[in-house]
Design a protein around this nucleic acid. Structure first.
Lengths: 344, 344
DNA sequence: GTTAGCACTCCACATCATTGAGTGCTAACA
DNA sequence: TGTTAGCACTCAATGATGTGGAGTGCTAAC
């Protein structure tokens, strides 16, 4: 790739900035006035012609101004963005207000981001890597039901009701409690196999059905919700950007957002590696989804504790305000870090 | 209100049916051919003129056909709908597949409905009337944390981590367990007041901070999620109906759907009274929301157990296929009933 | 009471001209 | 050699205009 001289860079920057604001193709005269380069429109035209040849900008049609290409945006995001400082001080307060439950917190985050940025946002629930059993606790609810509480590494609490086939007495429950804990502590659900079951059965002697039911329930509870939850907010913001707005496109896009599967796979999938802040930008066709060819996606990774990650994604038009979005995400991530540190 | 003679009813019915299918204003000639009345278009015109005067149909503009008014739809829904039998046999199976957790079940329901009907659907989580404590169980997690598990009437399980200010020993935890249960069993969160706290403090003697923290955590856990959750699905279906489709409208509507508060208040709010099946239909301006003036909403109530209700709402264009929607909801409700009965 | 016929209305659609923003190119200038 | 002014050209957007067709209302005849 040819290196751009400084003037070309400035012009490209001006074009992108202007386009981000207006959403309209920008012409040479505009740039001539907009920048402090003091160049006539004609000169700009020549430069723009070059920039187009190099692939940084494109013309939607012959007699229109230029708009940035994906390549142009990419250059802008990679090298030209100044680190704006963000004024999202109040975010933290608002976050803390309802942050008592993880699920609510994440919903809150999604909404907050959507309102702040005017784009659609997607937050995925954290993915717990480790699923080792910390301890199990059985409690009698009534004659017919037993409540199993399972605490997993990272203090995730799961619970499951077990319907009893035969009545049991408190003594048995106590015994079970003890035995289950001895055998299951520190185990992964994948490690709960027939051998373990056999050992437990040998220990207890009898109650085969019950043991089977219990272990079933426990593994089920642990594995439950393995499918990452995703929280979507601000989808209606899509309509604020006319370039996404012809029914057809908007419909597809909205469908893609609703049908979160593919999107959240994409967002959650890649662990960021190149950027130390964990923020990544996907422009246009850099996203894997057809419906999003006119969009850009900015993702960030938050960390709850060692090894427990979740993702935040912002979906907007290609002309999204990258600086603001990246800035907002950066502060958000630090805020979240603070909150989680405090909680633990 | 004047009574319509049989012929007028037939014509009105034909108009509505036709409009439901096509979404276009329907003219006299169409009806003349469409029905088995063997009347010329001129006669139909006269009748239509009458129907318009009576307010059952309207003309979007002078030289166009007629479309049903809200009043017309209302009559149709109230009296003219034949009870179609629905072919949603497979629904039940699909439902059971992932029905292990209430939240997942409801999401599943919303999605299923959206896919089946091609409208947007909204499901609200059940509202538990009774919040009486069944029992409480404290467990030590580690030196710094205590896990409180609270089971509420209806076997709703809540849990909460409590960070300890001072270390405690197992003996104290056991004692607390016992005392908490004796005092809290059968109480509503509103009944946990200073008197109770005082009584508990007297019993334990000391550990004032701990008791305060515990009771705080417990009441918090009980009240948490009192705000009804709502699950939205199939919002992108909106775009399938051109009459909702000019950007402006669609945007407002989508926003209303996303900003679930108002909508879910409305859907959850009224307890159905007039229809024994609990299914209610709101047409156009019968809904309280401005953004939905071009929509109809059909709601149904499901029951988990005595006194525990949730709602299901389907949002579509006024020309929604009322028969199908009502039918589908009816079978859904019975399916849900089955599932919940089985579970308990 | 029903029907045929006709004048009328008005939206939808296509056609056409106009406008204006923007370009590319060339020639002149510094 | 880089910059600029000028000019012809392109093309989307806009608006005016005309036409066709679907549909109505009304009247007169059956």
């Amino acid at each position: 790739m040819e290196k751009l001289d400084e003037r070309k860079v400035k012009i490209l920057q001006a074009i992108i900035r202007n386009y981000l604001e207006t959403g309209e193709p920008v012409g040479s005269r505009t740039i001539s006035k907009y920048t402090d380069l003091n160049l006539s429109s004609a000169t700009i035209r020549n430069e723009m012609s070059d920039l187009e040849e190099l692939g940084y900008i494109v013309q939607p049609h012959t007699s229109a101004g230029r708009i940035p290409s994906d390549k142009g945006y990419r250059l802008y995001v990679d090298t030209m963005m100044s680190d704006k400082i963000q004024e999202v001080e109040d975010m933290k307060e608002m976050l803390l207000e309802k942050a008592d439950k993880m699920e609510n917190l994440l919903k809150q985050v999604a909404k907050l981001l959507a309102v702040n940025t005017n784009y659609a946002t997607l937050v995925t629930s954290p993915q717990y890597r480790s699923r080792k059993v910390k301890f199990v606790q059985l409690t009698e609810v009534d004659e017919e039901q037993l409540l199993a509480i399972i605490v997993i590494e990272g203090n995730i609490v799961k619970n499951k009701m077990i319907v009893l086939r035969d009545p049991v007495n408190s003594e048995i429950v106590l015994k079970m409690n003890l035995i289950l804990n001895t055998f299951l502590q520190g185990l992964d659900p994948s490690e709960i196999n027939l051998q373990i079951i056999k050992k437990i059965r040998d220990q207890v002697g009898g109650y085969y059905d019950l043991i089977g039911d219990l272990l079933d329930a426990i593994t089920q509870a642990i594995n439950e919700e393995e499918d990452i939850q995703t929280y979507l907010s601000g989808a209606s913001n899509i309509f604020k950007y006319p370039e996404l707005g012809d029914m057809q496109r908007a419909s597809e896009l909205l469908y893609a957002l609703e049908e979160k599967k593919e999107l959240s796979d994409f967002i959650a999938g890649k662990t960021s590696n190149d950027d130390e802040t964990g923020i990544q930008v996907y422009i246009g066709t850099e996203t894997p989804m057809e419906a999003m060819r006119d969009c850009s996606v900015v993702t960030a990774t938050y960390q709850i504790e060692e090894g427990v990650f979740g993702k935040v994604g912002i979906i907007g038009p290609k002309r999204m305000d990258y600086e603001k979005v990246v800035g907002t995400l950066q502060t958000l991530i630090t805020q979240l870090d603070d909150i989680f540190k405090k909680k633990t």
